[in-house]
Design a protein around this nucleic acid. Structure first.
Lengths: 121, 121
DNA sequence: CGGCATCCATCCCGATACTG
DNA sequence: CAGTATCGGGATGGATGCCG
């Protein structure tokens, strides 16, 4: 029963569109990459994902939490400690995002070359 | 000679960051997906990629052209005809982007469930 | 048909300051 | 340490109109 509802990203009204957009948020791929190595505290995450501010990191993590990609566990201590970890669903994202990140790092040189020779024909 | 310059997306200053951002632009994954099936005319592309406006489609295609991902060929006729096609570099993107799009469509249901049960924890 | 120009909405994102 | 509050800017993207 309930055959998969046939999500289609080419359909503007399909929910998979917003899912894809979340996956491609500025910091989501980087966060998934760091967390693929295991759970991290908030501060570790902020340090390892270079260039992200605390506010935006929080926003992105909250969004990922709502989407069921990460869990957030608070340890009531002084000072406070909060750990983030990928869920099973989040872990299933590692391979696709690895592929994308890997492509970016592997082909960045070719892209830069293409930009440099732009207009030379 | 020239060992790969070790691009690292975790480094805010690394060019692979901007490359990754382009790959994750709103319409880039959808355009790559359509073009993975073969070249397309501008209008076909606009129709198959649901919801994109002509202006933004042009912008994205130009950006992809600069990055060496697509070629643009103009046929001087009346009315004008313009075809877009993935380059070799662009084709190497098909697999990673397929993986991401596939994940979005395959797991959209689970993400929606997670959102729906948000706060029930 | 393809696409540029213009104007405009908005939305992500960032800097800073402050709190439990 | 791990946030939240506030302010604000710059990029992205959408609507409309004109052109070759």
């Amino acid at each position: 029963m309930n055959p998969a509802p046939a999500f289609d990203v080419m359909d503007p009204a399909c929910p998979s569109r917003t899912v894809l957009r979340h996956l491609t948020d500025r910091w989501t791929p980087l966060i998934v990459t760091v967390l693929s190595d295991g759970s991290r505290r908030f501060g570790q995450l902020r340090d390892e994902v270079g260039g992200v501010t605390a506010k935006v990191l929080t926003q992105t993590l909250r969004s990922m939490e709502r989407d069921g990609l990460v869990t957030r566990s608070v340890t009531a201590s002084v000072p406070a400690r909060v750990d983030y970890e990928l869920t099973d669903l989040g872990r299933s994202l590692i391979a696709p995002i690895q592929a994308l990140r890997g492509w970016a790092e592997a082909h960045a040189g070719q892209v830069l070359d293409a930009r440099a020779s732009w207009g030379e024909g």
